[in-house]
Design a protein around this nucleic acid. Structure first.
Lengths: 212, 212
DNA sequence: CTAGAACTTGAGGGTGTCCTCAAGTTAATC
DNA sequence: GATTAACTTGAGGACACCCTCAAGTTCTAG
């Protein structure tokens, strides 16, 4: 839906400068980077930032909506791969790689931003596809049968922490942690789990808790 | 080492009130809780807090040094258990339980606080014991041979994130994540790991990065 | 009981971030 | 080129947290 009035040329230009600046700032310093730093990097005043994006979530939406859509596209691609387990691993590896390359993306994995509507919409779509990746890998017999989509949230949260901690010191270290985790997710490794899985709305509330 | 002069009675009392207040405040809100909140909970002024504890790390030290010593004691106990793998699991479960019960303890797992000298000293001792727990479990054949003490840091960092996220929503959910992780740590589950382990000083730097 | 050292207090200065708005500037239109 | 709506600007108020210090209070030793 193109907005009622198009932006004036200079405003449009500033909007793009801001999105570029926000992209790199979020990537380097996470979603909590000061908005004034984004304005400075874009070479505009803080007032202009607020003119274009009334709140942080609007900026996050502008930067990340397509990133999350790309994650969904990755998921779609994975569903076409011949080996379901390989697809499952391929998907997790790529998501973690993106986490490692972009601290903002990594933050998004652990937080809902309710006002970032396009991002959240894309996320919802991505979850549906991830559910299919999980189910397919389970049906193939390679992924343990007792885990759920919500359990993947654990994996991704934990992975995000490892990525953050080791990013500057050993940028590829997360691969080792992921490999350990994957060994625990293989069907032959499965021992009975001590707790029932999170219900979907519990997982949602867990993310909403850290919402902003 | 008793200090040169003992504190005046009222000062001693305030010191204890502050430690008690800090203990619960750290537990509920983590190590970054505002110092003014601790003073308020203790019923003393912010000035008094600074008189007793010149910086946050001194307060952390007063609250957590014995907590970390208790962790080391747990480790010692585990080394006397008959089954090395059971001991390894027992240790991790208890550490995670403490993480779940105390957000400050959980923060400490991911951060060095160089000025908190007693805490850091106790930590160092704890690490040495953990190394023995790992080695013993590996020698028993139950724990995969290719992991190191530093890899446990991944496990504990990731676990901390899960504990935080699910604490209010499903306080026992972390047990499920830990169980998945443990299944990846059993020797029969092992597939070759893609990266070399962190060197100890890399792990130390990873923690120093998030230091304060 | 008194003197003085030890202690407490909270107002206030410093910093960093958020967000607003009145005044000035610029692009689009005729 | 003039008009006006759209836009930019940055100073500044609000807030939260840090930490200090001069003035007032309380403990303790003699």
């Amino acid at each position: 839906m193109p907005s009622a009035r198009p932006l004036r040329r200079d405003a449009q230009r500033n909007r793009e400068l801001l999105i570029d600046a926000a992209r790199t700032a979020f990537a380097e310093r996470g979603l909590d980077v000061p908005l004034e730093e984004i304005a400075r990097r874009a070479g505009v005043s803080i007032g202009t930032l607020y003119n274009r994006f009334p709140h942080r979530a609007a900026l996050i939406d502008a930067v990340f909506a397509d990133r999350i859509t790309a994650t969904a596209a990755l998921a779609e691609h994975v569903l076409t791969m011949a080996d379901a387990w390989e697809g499952f691993v391929f998907f997790l590896e790529h998501v973690c790689e993106w986490q490692a390359a972009d601290r903002g993306y990594s933050d998004l994995a652990a937080r809902h931003i309710p006002e970032a509507t396009a991002t959240e919409e894309a996320r919802r779509h991505g979850y549906a596809l991830m559910q299919r990746i999980v189910t397919r890998a389970q049906e193939s017999g390679a992924l343990r049968a007792d885990i759920t989509l919500e359990d993947l949230a654990f994996v991704i949260w934990g992975q995000a922490r490892t990525v953050e901690a080791t990013h500057d010191v050993a940028p590829r270290a997360w691969r080792r942690h992921l490999a350990l985790m994957l060994d625990g997710l293989r069907a032959p490794a499965a021992h009975p789990l001590p707790e029932p899985p999170l219900r979907p709305e519990e997982a949602a509330r867990a993310m909403r808790g850290r919402c902003d």
